[in-house]
Design a binder for these strands. Structure first.
Length: 509
DNA sequence: CACGGAATGC
DNA sequence: GCATTCCGTG
C-alpha cells in the first residue's frame, strides 16, 4: 500500500478494531481499499477537534458545513498523502458523490453539503420505514424491551431466512420504505442509468449481508434483497450530537420501525458484520435468533460500540443486551492526525498530459492544526501502519476549544466508551433540541406512529417494496432545502414497494 | 463558488 | 471504482 503513507488502511482484524472495518474495507469501498472521502468526512465530523473545521449544521439533518475548506482539504490530503490536495479537488470528489447519492449540495450555502442518509439506507434496507422515524438515523425508536424481544437478526448464514424471519420484522412492518420516493417530482427524468452505480453500491451492503448469511448457502443467486435484519435497540437514550445524523432523535417514542444502522456507512456495510468474518465468530452464525454465544456477542457488541462511538451513532444503534457488558476495546481512531508523520509527498502528479508544473508546496501542512499534536505514543508507524490512523491517540488533542463542551472529555478511554452510550459526547451545539429529523419524521409518521417502535408494527406493508432503485436514481433532490422530504408533502412514498423486499428476500433465499 | 467532463492514476 | 487533477462554464 502506499507505504509511505501509512495511515490508514484497515486495521487488522485481529487485534482491535480501530475503526470499524467497514470504514476501510473493501466492502465499503469496493475497489479501493483506501478510505473514502465520505468516510473521512464522517470521521472529522465525529470529532470535536475538528469542529472548527467542519461540523454538522444545525438544523438540518445530515447537513454539514465545511468551515475551513482549506483545512479540510489539507487533512484529506494528508490522509491520502496528497499534499497537493485543495478544496477544489476535494470538492470535485464530493461532487462525484452527488450521483451516487451519498451527498448532495445544500444550495445556497457555501461549503455546505448534506449526507443523504435517507437514500443511503433505503436501498439497503428497504424495509425500513422511514417515515416513522424519520428516516434514517434516527430510525429507531427505542424499544424498551428490546431485549426481551431481541431478535437478532438473522443474518445468519444458513439459517434459512425464511425461517427466521418471520418474527422479526415483518415485512409488513417495514414496509414503508419509501419515502423517497417518488414523487413524481422527484424523479426527474434524468436518470438514465440510474442505478447502476449508485444503487449498486448501496446494495452492496446488502449483498454483503446476504452473502454473509448465505455464504454457503444459498447463494446461488444473489438476491439483492436484503434479508438482514437489524437488531433492535432498546434504549433511546442519549446521543451525542444532536445535529449529527447519527444522533437519535430525542423522541423516543416514535416509532420507528426498526432501527437501522444508520450511518451511511453503516448502511453500506453494517457494522454488524464488520467485525469479523470468521464464521465462527459471527454472532449470528448458526445460531438461531436467540441463541448466541456470549463471546461472540461481545465481540459483536464491541464492534457495534466502536461504530457507535466512532461515528457518534446513536446509542440506539447499539443493541443492548442486558447484562452484557462490553469490554472496552480500542476503538478509537482518529482521522488525521496520524498522518502526521509520515506524510510523504508525492511528486506532483504529473498527471495530466502536459503538466509539469511543480508546485511547490510545502509539504503539507505541517501544522496547522492538529498536527502538532503530541504525537502519541503508539501511533502507527509504518509497520503498524495499518492500524490506524490516528489510532490511538490518547486523548489528547484537541484543537478545538470549543466552547463548553469541554466537559466532555471525549473519547479517551474505554470508559468513555461506555460513556458514550450513556452519555455521549457533548454536543456543542446548544440546543437544538430537536433535530430536524425528528421533526420531519414526525410529521410524516403516520402509520408508524407506533410508539415504541418496537418491532415492526407497521401494519401496512406496502408491497412493492423496493423500488428498483434503479428507477429512481439520479434524481436530484437538492434544490429546495426541504425538498428532501417528499414524503410529507407529496407523500407518496412509495406506496408500493415495501415489504416486499424482505419478504421476498426471504423467499428468495 | 459550484458544476461536471475528461484524462489519468492507483 | 474512486479518486485526483485540470479545466471550461455558469
Amino acid at each position: 500500500m502506499k507505504a509511505g503513507c501509512s495511515i490508514v488502511e484497515k486495521p487488522e482484524g485481529g487485534g482491535g478494531y480501530q475503526f470499524p472495518d467497514w470504514a476501510y474495507k473493501t466492502e465499503s469501498s469496493p475497489g479501493s481499499r483506501q478510505i473514502q472521502l465520505w468516510h473521512f468526512i464522517l470521521e472529522l465530523l465525529q470529532k470535536e477537534e475538528f469542529r472548527h473545521v467542519i461540523a454538522w449544521q444545525q438544523g438540518e439533518y445530515g447537513e454539514f458545513v465545511i468551515k475551513d475548506p482549506d483545512e479540510v482539504a489539507r487533512l484529506w490530503g494528508r490522509r491520502k498523502c496528497k499534499p497537493q490536495m485543495n478544496y477544489d479537488k476535494l470538492s470535485r470528489a464530493l461532487r462525484y458523490y452527488y450521483n451516487k447519492r451519498i451527498l448532495h449540495k445544500t444550495k445556497g450555502k457555501r461549503f455546505t453539503y448534506k449526507f443523504n442518509f435517507n437514500k443511503l439506507v433505503m436501498p439497503n434496507y428497504p424495509f425500513i420505514n422511514i417515515r416513522s422515524s424519520g428516516v434514517v438515523p434516527q430510525s429507531a425508536p427505542p424499544v424498551p424491551t428490546a431485549s426481551s424481544r431481541f431478535h437478532f437478526p438473522p443474518l445468519d448464514p444458513h439459517s434459512p431466512p425464511s425461517d427466521v424471519q418471520p418474527g422479526r420484522f415483518s415485512a409488513s412492518s417495514l414496509a414503508a420504505s419509501g419515502q423517497e420516493s417518488s414523487n413524481g417530482a422527484d424523479r426527474k427524468g434524468e436518470l438514465p442509468e440510474l442505478e447502476d452505480g449508485s444503487a449498486a453500491d448501496w446494495r452492496r451492503g446488502v449483498d454483503l449481508l446476504s452473502s454473509r448469511s448465505s455464504v454457503a448457502g444459498g447463494l446461488g443467486h444473489q438476491k439483492r434483497k436484503p434479508d438482514i435484519m437489524l437488531p433492535l435497540f432498546s434504549r433511546p437514550g442519549v446521543y451525542p450530537d444532536p445535529h449529527s445524523p447519527f444522533a437519535v432523535s430525542p423522541l423516543p417514542g416514535r416509532g420507528g420501525v426498526l432501527n437501522v444502522p444508520i450511518s451511511p456507512a453503516l448502511s453500506l456495510t453494517p457494522t454488524i458484520f464488520s467485525y469479523s468474518p470468521s464464521p465462527g465468530l459471527s454472532p449470528f452464525t448458526g445460531s438461531s435468533c436467540f441463541s448466541f454465544n456470549p463471546e461472540e456477542m461481545k465481540h459483536y457488541l464491541h464492534s457495534q460500540a466502536c461504530s457507535v462511538f466512532n461515528y457518534h451513532l446513536s446509542p440506539r444503534t447499539f443493541p443492548r443486551y442486558p447484562g452484557l457488558v462490553v469490554p472496552p476495546l480500542q476503538c478509537q481512531m482518529h482521522p488525521e492526525e496520524s498522518a502526521q508523520f509520515s506524510i510523504k509527498l508525492q511528486p506532483p502528479p504529473a498527471g495530466r498530459k502536459n503538466r509539469e508544473r511543480a508546485e511547490s508546496s510545502e509539504q503539507s501542512g505541517p501544522a496547522t492544526a492538529p498536527a502538532a499534536a503530541p504525537v502519541p505514543p503508539r501511533i502507527k508507524v509504518e509497520p503498524a501502519s495499518d492500524k490506524d490512523p490516528e489510532s490511538v491517540r490518547p486523548s489528547g488533542r484537541e484543537e478545538e476549544p470549543s466552547r463548553g463542551e469541554g466537559a466532555v472529555p471525549s473519547r479517551t478511554t474505554e470508559e468513555e466508551k461506555g460513556t458514550v452510550f450513556a452519555r455521549p459526547a457533548a454536543p456543542v451545539w446548544p440546543p437544538g433540541p430537536l433535530s430536524s429529523p425528528s421533526e420531519e419524521a414526525l410529521e410524516v409518521t403516520d402509520d408508524s406512529e407506533d410508539r415504541p417502535g418496537r418491532e415492526p408494527s407497521a401494519p401496512e406493508k406496502k408491497e412493492d417494496a423496493l423500488m428498483p432503485p434503479k428507477l429512481r436514481l439520479k434524481r436530484r433532490w437538492n434544490g429546495a432545502p426541504e425538498a428532501r422530504e417528499p414524503s410529507k408533502s407529496g407523500r407518496v412514498l412509495w406506496s408500493g414497494p415495501g415489504p416486499r423486499g424482505l419478504a421476498t428476500a426471504a423467499a428468495d433465499a
